[in-house]
Amino acid sequence: MNIVVAMKQIPDLQQIRIRNRQPLFDDVPLTLGTIDKNALEAAVVLKEADESIKVTVLSAGNEEVEDTIKEALAAGADEAFLILDDALEGADSAAIAAVLAAAIKQMDGVDLILFGEGSGDNYSGQVGSRVAELLNLPQVGYVSSMEIKGGQAVVTRTLEDCDEVMEIALPGIISVMAGLNEPRIPSVTQILKAGKKPKEVLELDEVDVDIKKLAFTETISNLAPESNRKKIVVKSVDELLQGLRSENLIGR
């Protein structure tokens, strides 16, 4: 069984500083999407229970992804499939979905494609669904638990007011939620072996997609929200509780 885990390179969010409401990315180390790591962990857990499973990590982005992807290889992926091109810098969800779908078509016998529910930086949560549409595959989102049973996946989809248990035929696409598992910390040995694992690196013109036809969304501004402290002085706990209730922050 071949599982593909799609992962996005993002800046390490803990190390981004904000100046004049603009994020500063200089010298910020690159990592992989937080929920993408849950998706990878889910795949590696399945692989540990069934040795015939192969886990391939798939990513599209600039040249730096080749180094960043070592993190996924250290955390248990068997190999990487990468589409690297500086033209993908700043590509939006539609463009990335088209590139990933084209790449998946070029991979042999993919049974299951896993995504994190949203990326760690923009959290648009679109790519998994778009890829499913492009490849005409079934898809389930908001998955909080999953298992493979007799050629299909049985998953729990967690919605605001209920949990749904669903079966999804394979090949199919599953987008997982952060609470699915606790991604492992890779050992030093695994980290050092990561760079030696197989990697297939393609350029954009080697996959069947015309990036020029994909209209990139233009980001006009990306600002941190202004925080306006109300500076309300309270004289008692009762007054504090009353204030919080009136702001609808407690007792909803």
Binding site: K70, E71, A74, I185, P186, S187, V188, I191, A194, G195
Partner: peptide, 18 residues
């Protein structure tokens, strides 16, 4: 190196969590 960054982060993550 990327490997050194990952080793540093692995130790940091373990130390912070556990």
């Amino acid at each position: 190196s990327k490997e050194q960054q990952l080793i540093q982060r692995a130790a940091q993550e373990y130390a912070e969590k556990f």
